[in-house]
């Protein structure tokens, strides 16, 4: 069997794959955080909880209404997105004029509330979500066995990231968003309903998190704590990438997932902390983050 630095090729590729899958979720979540931050100037601490909610919505839809994975892929982000609309209208809107710290505290409270309620209902042990029938099975690529579902997650998340990037950077709607990120009042003075745009942007960013949650459901256990576990890592990813760019969020998401996967092969003890170490190094070398602009 082929080995690289004493590591079997199979194991290496396997961990790279897991790293990329994790990276896909980091990318989807940090993408949503970056879009929301750009327009609302709020770090959405509830992002992890809403990702968890997306996964739970899929599980509940399947077990109580018999809606399958593909239905959940559409419905769950929609449901969580509607919740986000309510959150923006009734909570976030009231604190835009305050110090940004309050946005963090408010969404942190929301995260605790959501997670607490679900922990109370479902406990902390995870619930299984079956892989949809169409995506079961494994492809033998010769050098690695690639589970179909994981391949799907990888392809789908890359597509979603690309589509989001395209929407924001290359379309008219995206130019409204970019302009409003720079100067919302002026954009509103041109006749664009910026308050509505803010609501929809928040809902879109949150829907991305919920979508990630649905895709994560068959891979990880559906659990109330899945959100808080990932959100802190995603914060580190965001600090590393810098909030400035959409592409930066995507690249650093996948990149750090990969680094984490590789660390699991070569130095497993550090795999849970490596992203934080990278963050510390990046902060020392380039405090604004790899793709960030000055504050």
């Amino acid at each position: 069997m082929t080995t690289i630095l004493g590591i079997p090729m199979q194991a290496l590729l396997g961990q790279i794959l897991i790293g990329l899958i994790n990276g896909a979720f980091y990318a989807l979540l940090s993408l949503g955080l970056a879009i929301i931050f750009g327009l609302l100037n709020i770090i959405n601490f509830a992002h992890g909880a809403l990702y968890m909610l997306g996964a739970f919505a899929a599980w509940l839809l399947l077990n109580y209404l018999g809606v399958n994975y593909w239905g959940a892929l559409i419905l769950s982000p929609f449901i969580v997105g509607v919740l986000a609309v309510a959150m923006e209208r009734y909570m976030l809107r009231r604190i835009y004029k305050l110090d940004h710290i309050y946005g963090l505290l408010l969404t942190f409270g929301t995260a605790l509330l959501i997670e607490g309620v679900f922990r109370n209902q479902f406990g902390v042990s995870g619930l299984a979500y079956p892989i949809p029938a169409q995506l079961q099975g494994v492809q033998n690529l010769g050098f690695i066995f690639l589970p179909n579902y994981r391949a799907w997650v990888l392809v789908a998340s890359l597509f979603i990231c690309f589509a989001t990037w395209f929407l924001i950077e290359k379309t008219r709607l995206g130019s409204y968003l970019r302009a409003a990120t720079e100067n919302p009042k002026l954009v509103q003075a041109f006749g664009i309903n910026v308050p509505l745009m803010i609501t929809l942007t928040y809902a879109f960013g949150v829907a991305l998190a919920a979508l990630a949650g649905v895709m994560a459901a068959p891979i990880y256990q559906v659990s109330p704590v899945m959100g808080s576990n990932i959100i802190i890592v995603v914060f580190a990813v965001v600090v590393i990438g810098g909030m400035g760019s959409i592409l930066g969020a995507i690249v650093s998401g996948f990149g750090l997932g990969l680094i984490e996967g590789l660390t699991k092969v070569f130095y497993p003890e550090a795999s849970s902390t490596v992203i934080f170490v990278v963050m510390a190094i990046v902060l020392l070398v380039k405090p604004t983050g790899l793709f960030g602009r000055a504050e």
Binding site: I43, I101, L283, L284, E295
Partner: peptide, 28 residues
Amino acid sequence: AIAIRRHGIYFAMVTLALAQMVYFFAVQ
């Protein structure tokens, strides 16, 4: 020394992330 390189909400995120590192260290 690391965290004060950023301000505002970034400072909050950095301290959170570094503390999580300490947490994982304590777990292991």
